[in-house]
């Protein structure tokens, strides 16, 4: 299921929320606005947003606080853009340490912010595409039989058919047969394609 380009704006100033939402809408980016970190946490699952524009100075939980929560969530690919006062170097440093996508100083440059949001969305999309792909590869691998799986593992190690046959104690002919089945089931065009798929499994070993 593809995610939508979904941006959350968290700022306690209504005018800032509204103007940013309008700005994003001119780039066909949907957004939802929240007046506080708590509001955001209460209404959005941590891994749902593609991008969060986050003011650091919030009543209650601070921007950095929310950033840490988002970054700590498992499998979370949300890109956080943190906004803070001019020259607030310590905040900038800790934002980047906590894994923010970008740090933006006030007063905002709207065009630059828009570009940053696009970049953030692009990155999230890429990450999510790759994840989708990995899911797909895993689904395909699950279709392999026990023997085909053994042949697959040896194939991606770069062994030729004869060596695989010897190692598995089967005839080269049977091996050829299994090999064709693996390539077919994994929808691999070449051996190197098959290797790339194998490498995208993370972790590569110890998983069926």
């Amino acid at each position: 299921m593809p995610h939508r380009r979904h941006v959350a704006i968290v700022d306690d100033e209504a005018s800032v929320r509204e103007s940013l939402a309008l700005l994003l809408s001119t780039a066909q980016i949907e957004s939802r606005t929240f007046a506080s970190a708590e509001d955001y946490l209460a209404s959005v699952p941590l891994d749902e947003s593609s991008c969060v524009i986050l003011d650091n100075q919030l009543p209650g939980l601070s921007g950095i606080g929310l950033l840490k929560r988002i970054a700590a969530a498992a499998d979370c690919d949300t890109a956080v853009i943190l906004i803070s006062g001019h020259g607030d170097v310590p905040t900038a440093v800790s934002a980047m340490k906590c894994g923010a996508f970008h740090f933006v100083e006030k007063p905002l440059d709207p065009e630059a912010l828009l570009l940053t949001v696009e970049e953030a969305l692009g990155r999230t999309e890429q990450v999510r595409d790759r994840q989708t792909q990995v899911q797909e590869f895993r689904g395909r691998r699950a279709l392999l039989t026990q023997r085909e799986h053994e042949v697959f593992e040896l194939l991606v190690q770069g062994l030729p058919t004869k060596l695989i046959a010897r190692q598995l104690g089967i005839t080269p002919r049977t091996t050829e047969h299994h090999r064709a089945a693996v390539m077919h089931k994994m929808q691999a065009r070449t051996i190197s394609h098959l290797v790339r798929m194998a490498l995208s499994f993370d972790p590569p070993a110890g998983e069926t």
Binding site: E13, S15, V16, S19, L20, L22, L23, P107, L108, P110
Partner: peptide, 13 residues
Amino acid sequence: SQPLSTVATYAVA
């Protein structure tokens, strides 16, 4: 900085 940012944002939008 806050109102200035907002003015600029509306203008760009």
